[in-house]
Design a protein around this nucleic acid. Structure first.
Lengths: 225, 225
DNA sequence: ATAATTCCGTTGTTTTTACAACAAAAGGAG
DNA sequence: CTCCTTTTGTTGTAAAAACAACGGAATTAT
């Protein structure tokens, strides 16, 4: 078993809390540690989630199964990553269609959610920090999904692209942006076909709406009729 | 100005906290109250958000402006609704491309986020409840968006529909589900054309994949080749 | 009951996208 | 530099979706 404080210090959930402060903090949390073998289910479908999972070591997949049994992997978890927080967050919801399965020998820490967000009588600062970190994690996740959604709700590839570029432009504060994706990744992000997207990009460049070279794109204002 | 505790008691943020407990709770929060005229900007684009907004009375729109100045309304806020929480959550991010504008005379309460999530020395129960409520709100929002995303990332209308039905089926625990949308709303939710979707539904019924009548749908297992 | 309105399905046409296959360009390794 | 691999752009075709227009069913109002 790995050194717990050392492992936790690496997790965003414990950001800003030093290794030596983690042990006293743990004492005011209720937690459970368990080891899972490769292929073993960490959280089963339909299970009630009332704790936040944290990967100490190993690796696991969050996967979804639809009505017809088709499985798709939604996320890949490694050391430091947390899971199940949204389910615990929204009042101990049951997992529906979602499961978490180890694909390596994994050590998992389960932190009781109620205890985590209820500040102990001693009102320790680290506890507050923990809550704050959790909020930050969920908030950022929320922002990320929302952004992506704004692009995905657009009907055409062109609109999706423009939506994405516009967003990045706002974020980077310029009309000349560099994007963190290659073409295939961008296509995956926007849920469109790569080659079709490439073609659309060409057309947009042709029409003078945008310009680009590699990962650098320029948005042009003048589509004066 | 409206009676504050009375108004707050209606908000999900203060759920489980009775009117008479709200005043003492407010004393350990830092807040600011302001009135806005119709058309007045409540949160401006680019502004740094370090407090959670709560609509006491009136109405406001959250809207997005893209690079080319096209505005689209993202959400409609009424009494009890909160806004800006995700931005405050993820460490006081600046609004990018988003703004909140009153469309009625509105009273808005701004609750300082730091104070809100940092438990007071007296470690009052209501404060904990407030944090818990905030988490619940964000968590639920997160779940909702994630669900929708799962459908939107599918390429074809058919896949989107099946994805949605499958989700509902898991949630409702049956293969016979009733959905909270009419056709137009479902099409909007899935970001597809209504008539095209109707046609696709017909085809799916034809092929024996599903059956439906009005808002009641049945998913069938046997698509034995 | 009748009229009006909203909702839903259908069909034909146009536009867009996916798909496949390939060519060109870029990047890396030896 | 040359070979090999990966990435990106191009093109033609087939499939799918958007769009528009309409007719019938269902719902609501009168």
């Amino acid at each position: 078993m790995k050194n717990l404080p050392e492992a936790l210090a690496l997790s965003p959930l414990f950001e800003g809390i030093t290794e030596k402060d983690i042990l006293p903090l743990l004492s005011c949390l209720t937690f459970k540690e368990r080891e899972f073998s490769p292929g073993e289910t960490i959280l089963a479908e339909g299970e009630r989630v009332d704790s936040v999972g944290l990967v100490i070591s190993g690796g696991a997949h969050i996967s979804m199964n639809d009505f017809w049994g088709n499985r798709s992997i939604v996320a890949d978890l490694g050391p430091g990553d947390i899971f199940g927080e949204v389910y615990a967050l929204s009042g101990g919801t049951n997992l529906s269609g979602v499961e978490v399965v180890a694909y390596q020998s994994s050590e998992i820490l389960f932190l009781n959610f109620k205890r985590m967000i209820t500040v102990c009588s001693s009102a320790c600062d680290f506890h507050n920090r923990l809550i704050s970190n959790l909020l930050k994690i969920v908030g950022e996740k929320n922002l990320m999904i929302t952004e992506k959604m704004r692009c995905l709700t657009k009907r055409s590839t062109r609109e999706k692209l423009l939506s994405y570029f516009s967003l990045e432009s706002k974020k980077q504060g310029k009309n000349q942006i560099s994007i963190p994706f290659n073409r295939q990744e961008l296509a995956d992000y926007l849920s469109v076909d790569r080659s079709a997207m490439s073609a659309e990009l060409s057309r947009m460049k042709e029409e003078g709406i945008i310009d680009y070279r590699k990962n650098s794109f320029v948005l042009k204002l003048h589509h004066d009729q």
